[in-house]
Amino acid sequence: PVCVLYSLMGVAASFDQKQTSKCASLIQSHLALKNKTSDHGFTWGNKIIGTGEYSTVYRGYQRESRLPIAVKKIQAKNLTKVRKTRIMNEIAIMNQICKLPDHDKYFVTLLDAFSDDLANAFIVTKFIEGQELYKIATAHPTGLSERVVRQMMRQILLAVHVLHQNDIAHRDIKLENIIFDKDSKRLKLIDFGFATKTSSINSNGNKVQNSSSLFCGSVHYVAPEIVLEQPHDSKKVDIWALGVLAYTLFTGEFPFDNSNQQILLKSIANGNFTLPRNLSPEAKALLNDLLLVNPTKRPSAASLLHHSWWTIEL
């Protein structure tokens, strides 16, 4: 059966250009949360800046540097074996991202992860002073201009390209998981609760591509192969989600939508959608490429960087 896994709430974080970026060694070889009896130099109070199904996010700061932080707390009572495994995976992925050049340009930055004496889990990230792309989009219910959408999609695609280059798929790309950092004036990708490695080393020491059969992500953004419960390439799932994202920014509506979830999933599986009329031919071609039902025909993030849409005059 398909296993439905629910992501922990994503935490927005930011990079202070005056701070020296240091990626702490957060994960032991067995991927166990470090147990700490102290707060490890962080201070946070009762100011809640977000909540998830199993977590609460607090605003705080790093005492030595005064760097603003976000602290996600997952109470021990909510830490089932499956959820703890997901948290370990999320931290491991974020730790790998933290080691990439210019990671702070594209992604939320992980600072630390630990558990306390009561077995509560904590994930500490830098705080982004900004706004979710979801809020920006909903302020424009009929969609944003093609020029603005192009600027946004270019930044998001670059972030996805960096992930895919490093054999990571996000698997939950959506408006709510992208935040505009008002300091850097850039869009950043957050929430790696569903992220996965897309390759592994086999017993012969060779790199092999991983496939997945998990139903994960948000229903309006899931790809046809997920709906059909087929083993799939998680990178291609990200590409489909980029298509849904672009369409939504263009129009203020999802390309596939219905209050009846069964009908919605059927329409996604069929891949029938209506192209917006007021777009350039290049933008329409991009949407058609991203929202191809056959995942093997969808372009890679690398090839999308060379699409003609980026260079046309608008």
Rank of each mutant, 00 (worst) to 15 (best):
E225D: 11
T198R: 00
G143A: 13
N278Q: 04
T251W: 06
Q165C: 15
I48T: 11
R154S: 12
V124G: 01
K18A: 09
T138I: 11
F114N: 01
K77Y: 05
G205V: 12
D183S: 15
H306S: 09
S303L: 09
I49Q: 08
N89W: 01
H232P: 00
L292N: 09
L158S: 10
A121D: 01
S267F: 01
D238F: 11
F192Q: 14
K236L: 09
K77N: 05
I268T: 01
N89I: 00
A285R: 07
K284T: 11
D112E: 08
F256C: 13
A32W: 02
F256E: 13
I49L: 06
K47Y: 11
L286R: 08
I201H: 05
T142F: 06
V82K: 05
G50H: 01
L275D: 01
K73A: 12
W44V: 07
N272M: 02
P224Y: 08
A302S: 06
A195Y: 03
P295T: 10
D238Y: 09
L187T: 02
R298F: 10
S55D: 11
E313M: 05
G45S: 14
K235S: 03
W240M: 07
I268F: 04
Y61W: 07
Q62R: 08
G143Q: 09
T296V: 05
E313C: 12
A223W: 04
K284W: 00
T296G: 01
K284C: 11
D183R: 14
T80Q: 05
C23L: 09
I179H: 06
I178D: 00
V108D: 08
L265R: 15
A70V: 07
S234A: 15
P255N: 07
W44K: 10
V219T: 10
N206I: 13
L286C: 13
T109Q: 03
G60Q: 08
G45T: 10
F194P: 00
K284M: 11
N95A: 13
S7I: 02
L111S: 01
L228G: 08
D233N: 15
F215L: 15
G130A: 12
K22W: 06
A137G: 05
N46K: 15
E225Y: 02
R63I: 15
E282P: 02
M9R: 13
S218Y: 01
L157Y: 00
I179S: 10
L189F: 10
V227M: 07
V57I: 15
N288D: 10
C216K: 00
T142S: 14
C3M: 10
L304P: 03
S7M: 02
V222K: 04
I226A: 08
Y221P: 04
G271R: 01
G217F: 05
